[in-house]
Structures are given as structure tokens and as C-alpha cells.
Design a protein around this nucleic acid. Sequence first.
DNA 1: GTCTATAATAGGATAGAC
DNA 2: GTCTATCCTATTATAGAC
Lengths: 224, 224
Amino acid sequence: MKKYKPGKIRERNEEVILKAAEQEFVLNGFKGTSVQAIANRAGLPKANIHYYFKNKNNLYKAVLEYITQLWNEVLSDISADDDPAEVLHEFIRTKVELSYTHPRASKLFAMEIIQGAPHIREYIRMDMRQWVRSKTRVFDEWIAAGKMDPIDPVHLIFMIWATTQHYADFETQVLTLMNRAEYEREDIEHITNMVSHVILKGCGLQPLQALATSDMASSTVTTP
Amino acid sequence: MKKYKPGKIRERNEEVILKAAEQEFVLNGFKGTSVQAIANRAGLPKANIHYYFKNKNNLYKAVLEYITQLWNEVLSDISADDDPAEVLHEFIRTKVELSYTHPRASKLFAMEIIQGAPHIREYIRMDMRQWVRSKTRVFDEWIAAGKMDPIDPVHLIFMIWATTQHYADFETQVLTLMNRAEYEREDIEHITNMVSHVILKGCGLQPLQALATSDMASSTVTTP
DNA sequence: GTCTATAATAGGATAGAC
DNA sequence: GTCTATCCTATTATAGAC
């Protein structure tokens, strides 16, 4: 996509700008974000942003492109021979992990879709739909073979996306309700196990994790 | 909250403005929305918006207040004597219905939280937390009585919120992937049944709906 | 490659005529 | 109660000095 040879300085600055832009776009949306605010956060003069990315629209698209690359790597190749329980668990584990490691990417993507996906319509219509179709085809074979309950595969994918991304997108709400400052490693494992257990069992599969009462008990909300 | 006697004109205009504001705020976020854009959509001159709501911040808060009232009515009173399966099903049914009838309210609320909930921090910390605590207390009793699996009640609530609101917030993505223009009544029932089935069964409860294969089969994604 | 200065426009808010 | 005209600030983007 880039036509010029990226030098060392350019490479480093572009990365700094992209990171700053991602944060500002999450905080204030595309329209609500000023190039000045991005420049301040990046520690560069405003004109440099325009020098590297031409205009705000280009910069936003660059950030989104970076994010969609992340999403594309999830559950890349599965087949009907694989074990449904293991695949679904791995799907859930990866998505919870992404919510933990890249919360801002998830948030920005969510905002873009909430606002009607004006910049990534085509990505959804082509790449994403292709991804969904390739997975549902496998799910359908599992159902036909009686390996799992006849849960509509498309909605099953929606359910897993929704549940796992919730911990990134609604981070503020989740943490506030749990009276916590931030997620920790053990929270992520707890969430993975809980979500995996409910969904696998809900699909008529054998859950991979036993429910440890200490792990699952409602000690999550502490009285202030 | 209002100090003046609301006349007929005022009442009608305020409603028109609130509706227009909700749409614009969803499309462009708080910062990205101009009072001019709201005025245009409402079919009123810009100065009238300021006349009725003083400033943009007040207007935004009024929209959010209207939305939180909707949310407060969900699952208002339950007790340990109630049947877990029925309560959870009703919870899911109501939330899916709200996603269908008030998608913009859900979207705006989601955006506010994604951006760090700067305007509704206190609402979450007080009202919402109180609501969650009153529900988890009942769930805990069910678990203690062996009526359902020991699923962490707080995360169970998150899971139901996430799954049901997804159909409002990510409407664009869901519809695009399903190659549909908009939801229909039967979609809503299909979604309710599917989500309810997986979650109830996943919690060790008897699902209320039998899985109709015709209902659950993967005919959702049509080839273009 | 970097930054200051500036043009051109759009924004929130208000005064004051009707 | 309604709306036009206007003030002032912030915004995107660029020109041009370094």
C-alpha cells in the first residue's frame, strides 16, 4: 500500500502516531478527534501528522487496517476432523486473550461498527463473511455428524464474539461493577474457563474445565 | 429536575430534539456531533437547541438519563423462590426485545462505556452495581440450593448482557454477515430461543425451548 | 525531514429583533 | 417562544522557512 521506501525515522514515527491515534480515536471517535490531540499525545508537531498520513481520514484507515490484521489471525484453519470442544475452547481462549492484550483495538473496532461501519463495510462484506462461512461449514458438519447440538453456527459465532469482546469493550463497566482497577492474569483464566464451560455445555459438548467452586463462586463483587 | 412548567410546545420540541440528538450522538459521538447537525435533523434553528437545553453537555446528559430509565426496568424483582430457568429466560427475552425496539439507545450507551463512561461513572458505580448485587444474591442462593451449576453470577450477567446487546450494538455487522437488510420478528424469536437454550443448558438448567432443527439449522448465511 | 505561521472553515454559544 | 446575526474559539490543512 505504501509506495515509498520506509526509512528508520519514518518507521518509528509512523508507529508512534498510529499508537497515539488509536487512543484518541477510542476516546473521542473519528469526528471528535483533532489532529492536534493526536500530535500532542505523539509528542510531535501537528504538521508532521499530515506529512506522514496526508489527512485524518488516511490515518484512521491505517489504524483500522492494523486492527483487522489482528482479527484475521483468529482460528485460522480448522477442519471437520478436529474435536468441536477443543476448537471452540481455543476460539474462546484466543478471543479473551486478545481482549486482554489489545483492548483499545477491540474498542475502536466496536465503535466503528456501532456507528454503522462507514469505513469497513467492504471488509465485513467480503473478508469477514468469508471467514464466517468457512467456520460455519465445519460447524455444520459436526452437527450433521451428531457431534454437537444443532445450534445455529452463525449465531454461535456471534455469541462467542459478543461474550469475549465484552471484556475489552465494556472494560470500564466490568471493572467498576467488580470494584477493581484492572484485569489480572487470573481474571483472564477465570473468564476463559467460565465462558468456555457455559458455551461448550450449552452446545451439548463435554466442558474441558471442571467447575472449581473456589474458581466459580460469586466472590467477584466485593462490598465496598 | 426541570424547574419550569412544561407547556405543550416545549414538551413536543424537547422530544423532537432528544430523538434527533440520540441519532446524531450515535453516528458521530459526543464530541463529533455538532449542535447544528442536531438542529438540522430536528428541523429547528440551532438557537432553539440552546434555548431548551442550555448547552450540548446538558442535552447529552438528558439523552443518557432517558436511556438509563429503560435499563432500570429489566428484571426488576426476583426472589430465590422463583424458577432459575424461567427467570434467566425472561431476562434474555427482555434484553433481546430491547435490542430490537431500542437499538440506538443500546448503541449510545455502549459508546459511552467504550469511551470510558465519563458521563455515567456514578450511575454504574451506584445504581447499576446495586442492581447487579441484588440479582447475584438470588443466583447465589440457587447455586447453594443445587438448583443450577456454580457459574459465577456476575459473569453470567455479563454474558447475557453481552450476547443480547450484541444484536443492537453490532447490528450493522450482524446484518451484513447474514446478508439481510433488517431484523424481522422471527429473527428476534430465533435469537431469543438460541441464546436462551445455550445459556440455560450451559448453567445446568433444563432449556425451555426444544431445538427445532428447522429453526436452528445453519440457513442463516445465504450465498450472495 | 521538521516545524512555524497562516489561510479557510466550522464549531459552541449568545444577544437581541421579532 | 422563535429565529437571525454575530462573536470568538478551535479545527483541518498547507505554504514555506529552516
